[in-house]
Amino acid sequence: MKSVLSRLLMLVVLVALLLSACAPAATPAPTQAPEKPLRVAIVMPSSITDMAFSQGMYEAWVKVQQEMGGPSKLEIAYSENMFKVPDAAAAIRDYASQGYDIVIAHGSQYGTSLAQIAPEFPNTTFAWGTTTDTFADQGIKNVFAYNPAAEQGGYVLGTIAALMSKTGVLGVCGPVEAGDAKTYVDGFKYGAEQARPGVKVQVTYTGSFSDVSLMAAAAETHIAAGADMLTGSSQSVVGAIGVAKEKGAKWFGQQWDQTSLAPDIVVANQVYDYTGIIKDMIAKRKAGTLGGVAYTLTLENGGLTIKYNDRVPVPPEIKAKADEVIKGIIDGTIKPLP
């Protein structure tokens, strides 16, 4: 009797878990739709409200969905908080076997799994990032890759931060030294150093994309060491933003517009806009190309934009300098990485 009860309880727990954590929020297609909708599934390491990496991808698809005419044209399913790679791999395989047309593996840590799964579903389009590797060298033809040139915006924001700083010390809260986090950090540092020789750029990595607490401690440390301008990457920066707000340091957002979290201190953000590449992938799929293209999000192609916060005004001369830098990066006269 007891074991039956405890099994029942476990079952309840499991059901609750399934309901909450990995329920693919599939939007059902209206019945008798004249045309079969395009079905896309996104697997993400954090949540769709993380104000960073995952939210950027999810909201881009929602925007494309609206442009295309709603769920009857484009059906979106997603699994968020797949911070464990085996869970993510299982989700990717599930979606592919359920016949989703496009499956997005949104995380560079999913690459190895994807390279195994993609060949099993040759009619499905896969895409992953941030990377430039489409596995074409492995003979795989149905994988797109996308990679934000995060160093470009990083360079621009670094320029602004260096020029605005009173202490001449900037703090960068990095998560893991890899992917777009690394290129962003490197670009920010280089931009700051170019704009203001002698500026001190302090860089920390926490070794985790999700450790909010350590990220907060990192921001604390930067400020204690004199930094008055902070930036950082990954969903865990919300911890750092909280500290910056409390201590009155300025913040530069990355991956998503983080203004709403701290409207009084966010100066500017580099925002990823995936809508362009999404539309291109859909078009390519219709034309019969299921993969093989490595996209790069740049300032030039509109995949990256710099978004200012009106409540924290940037002096006009600094803004002018920033515009100049953007132009330089677009026309190639400025290299954002050393």
């Binding site: 909010v212 607490s213 919300v238 911890g239 500290v243």
Partner: peptide, 18 residues
């Protein structure tokens, strides 16, 4: 202590294994 005293926000899985 994380959400209302140290970091002052809530994010999913914010403890990340603490």
């Amino acid at each position: 202590s994380l959400s209302i005293s140290l970091i002052n926000l809530f994010q999913e899985n914010m403890t990340s294994g603490m």
